[in-house]
Amino acid sequence: MEVILLTTLLVWAGAGIRKLRKQGLWKDMIVYACLWATSTTIITLHRFNIPVPNPLDGIAYVYQPLSYLWKQWFS
């Protein structure tokens, strides 16, 4: 199952990149490849139960002092 999923993703990505290269849209191609790589990595890591850093944790960390204040005020 994992193998099929991964192959489909890669084939799909390859087709997209080839199309963009033919059209000569280099910048689009780089963005395309980056986004695709990120998402494939996340999905693969998740499938194999390897913990992926959660962006929401980071955001929660940034806003920690503010949410603390909020709790103080409404309690």
């Binding site: 990505a13 849209l25 910048k27 996340i42 999905i43």
Partner: peptide, 26 residues
């Protein structure tokens, strides 16, 4: 990023959204 059209990056962005949706809320 000054791309000509947003359509070229829509599919991988969609993929990224799915990937993120799996990990955002454990």
């Amino acid at each position: 990023l000054n791309l000509k059209t947003y359509r070229t990056i829509t599919v991988p962005m969609g993929m990224l959204t799915i990937a993120l949706s799996v990990i955002v809320y454990p």
